[in-house]
Amino acid sequence: MSLTPAPIAEVGFYEPWWMQIVKTLVIFGIGFSLVPLALLYERKLLGRFQNRPGPNRVGPFGTLQPMADIFKLVTKEQFKPRGSIGWLFILSPLLAMVAALATFALVPFSGRPQDIFGTPVGLYGLDSSIGLLIFFAFSSIGAYGVLLGGWSSGSKYSFLGAMRGAAQLISYEVSQGLALLGIVMTAGTLSLSGIVEHQSGMWFILPQVVGAFIFFVATLAEINRTPFDLLEADSELVAGYMTEYGGGRFALYYVAEYVHLVMAGAMFATLFLGGWQLPFGIDPPGWIDPIVVLAKTALIVTLIVWIRASLPKVRYDQLMSFGWKVLLPLATLNALVTAVILVVTDK
């Protein structure tokens, strides 16, 4: 039983095993602590967009508001509707949160290993040669959190929300994946850090502007944000798939939603905005890299919140026809044109 060293999924590890455990905990911690930050940022920003101060009572400038929210949710009674299916009802929010947090391990925060306590450490959880596919795999597992949660609640609103969710997530996942085919072909790799490194000359947002647009719109639908927040649709379905949830379980869905928001920003920054790279050949010291990634992430998060403050919801049939009749053909065309250009200009 002596196989050659077994690299599961061809992972570029620099670290000893204890550092990998530390990294796991740190990534989990950072992912979790970004949630209250994103929550506060969105509420503050939405408040300013609507010409009101936003939360400003708890703590200085309202900065402790998310802590108060979370404390309230966690200390509430964990109730379960009589018509619900117990174990699925409990499992679904966990599934949604774990799948959302796991994707956070894929974001590369720096290209070079940093020296931490004398040990070179790569600033990412997992740098796999198929990182992009792992991202999609986790996001498709996340869809089960919505689907099973809505189904097992035993309520018609939850059920309708979940069914909408299933259709919407499947439809837009196709466009989301196809939109990235252009950059995968250009970079010639599925590794996220490889894709970032390939953008040292020019960020992919310039040559792949159509792909970036499609990916952004499809991501909005995937992470269930306005104008595609039909899974919740509070004007029609009470709260969609999470109608019957309260307290800590609701908080888990909430966490998943905000991790998705941050992840959408981080993925867009990684894929189209050059990740840790700065323009004009500026080459800062290594510790700047994660800050650059987070700044680009914040930029995209701001854009998404801005969209939420500006746009109304689309209707369900509009959502479907837009996804299948506009985004999907456009994404296919983008992949096709990119392929032709790549072949023609082949060195």
Binding site: L133, A137, S140, Y144, W151, I170, E173
Partner: peptide
Amino acid sequence: VVQVMVYVGAVMVLYV
């Protein structure tokens, strides 16, 4: 990964 993406993520979601 393709197994999870295609079968778990797309085909089985349709079944469910």
